[in-house]
Write a protein that binds this DNA or RNA. Sequence first.
RNA 1: GCCCCGGUAGCUCAGUAGGAUAGAGCAACGGCCUUCUAAGCCGUGGGUCAGGGGUUCGAAUCCUCUCCGGGGCACCA
Length: 586
Amino acid sequence: MKSLLSDLLTTAVTALQEQGDLPADTPVTINLERTRERRHGDFASNLAMVLCKAARVRPRELAEKLIAALPASEQVDKVEIAGPGFINFFLNASAWHATVGRVLEQASAYGRSQRGEDKSVQVEFVSANPTGPLHVGHGRGAAYGATVADLLEAVGYRVHREYYVNDAGRQMDILATSVYLRYLDLCGETLVFPLNGYKGDYVWDIAASVHREHGDALRHSAEDVFRGVPADEAEGGDKEAHIDALIRRTRELLGEAHYRQTFDLALNTILDDIRRDLQEFGVRYDEWFSERSLTENGSVERAVQRLAEAGHTYEEKGALWFRSSAFGDEKDRVIVRDNGQSTYFASDIAYHMNKLERGYERVIDIWGADHHGYVPRVRAALTALGDDATRLDVLLVQFAILYRHGERVQMSTRSGEFVTLRELRHEVGNDAARFFYVMRKCEQHMDFDLDLAKSQSSDNPVYYIQYAHARLASVFRQLGEKGLQWDPANGAANLQRLSESHEDALLVSLSRYPEVVESAALSHEPHQLAHFLRELANELHTYYNAHQFLVEDAPLRDARLNLIAATRQVLANGLGLLGVSAPDSM
RNA sequence: GCCCCGGUAGCUCAGUAGGAUAGAGCAACGGCCUUCUAAGCCGUGGGUCAGGGGUUCGAAUCCUCUCCGGGGCACCA
């Protein structure tokens, strides 16, 4: 509908250029908007105001010329000049009625498009360290990432969804050590748990598995384990030095094989839990990409080597540095430490190099906002490697701040004090959680009021939208019970009977849906769709209250049933894209 | 100190490639169920778009300064 008008305007501009009313070299972008007010017509363009300088005439004068050059169209009733020079288009009723047929014909495909031309996009999201269960903060990234991926797929992109598993590195060593210390406790040893250790209940569970499998076979006395270990912070020492020494002792005492076994048990137990959690949340992945594999197959080494060969590294104080400041970063970064170990950043360079090598047209990283300082150095690395860093989009999701009883809930994975995503899902339901998370644009800080979300009240907009869908399903059930028929063909032939203002509003919204999906997808803003669905539901509820659908007048009844069938379809399609169910009864 | 995000109704938020009179939900107040689900609908009140300056036909939207809130600035991951 929009593209039709856009074509008309393009034709008019070309005509004016041929007549010499407009310089031929003027760059023209057609800007066409839905109007907010009825009296401004259905669509408006500010074209005359944008081009008036180039044409050297007043906006309204140029608007007149444009209208005169506009080809006639069956869909357009009239075209007016208004205000400072807007060109307002009034479409005729049949143009709007045609929407109903399109929706019913395309059904679940309505709103989908080929805009993405099958280009490939990789979306990496959540990628939380497998050191504990997902918490509500990860939930936002999960819901947001899944929805962005689904939206892109809906508009014709080939999407690859990926989770980067940080299965190497110090945090994982801390986890394995925490498990071992809890295991010793289960064996009957008395020890002081390190401040920096992971204290969650799940660590006890994993320790219990170790104990079930090995009994006391891996037991060493606490005295032995803590021998030579510097004091923890509580005793006036350094907590980092303390935990590092404990990791070293654990490795020594367990031996590489048993250490690795404990490490992997912890990793896999938690990863399995994360997988199950996300799957239950309706979030699916095509790939779980292992960080460790990058080290093991030499990718990290290769990335470092490539940077070095390109002359972008130097040695200082025993470490190898990447000269990232030459590529827009604020300072240089270490990629290989003085102890010979590569840094997490080195793995990340290798990972992003790998992503681009896989040939995706676009690579999207969805990160927590606390990683924002990390963006310039990743881009710097890609540029230094000679890759095209503009293929990478980093979307930063601000934190969700939890409130309970009006007070902020403090969270920390380390301390084990947090609300898990699973708890949230069980308390408010998947639908409410998925919807709630994407209701706000990602760069907006989100206040997540647990009490509100937990209370199954109508405050939660997801119920409002689902209720609209359920009501419509109910109407079609009532149809049979009242002994009435719905003849869709007859409805299609009588769409001109839809002339109430409530019906007009619905028709406009239904026609707008594909534009909303496209806009939400291309700008990575699922909240646009969430807001649209709320408006559509509102229009439906209003219509429902104002008019009876199951009337005696068969042509009118059929026409209305066609309209609400289309509305039900769009509600279902939109909710589906948000990962929310569309129930037939509530 | 530097960097990122935000500041719009009592509360939570939409609205920014400049556009016509700034919108919604919740909360408050007043109405609507013998009729397709009242998890709904209708109505009323509510604003210095944080503040100053600038750009222009036109600024919540762009530029600049200031103030306030959140986050980030590792040889951690």
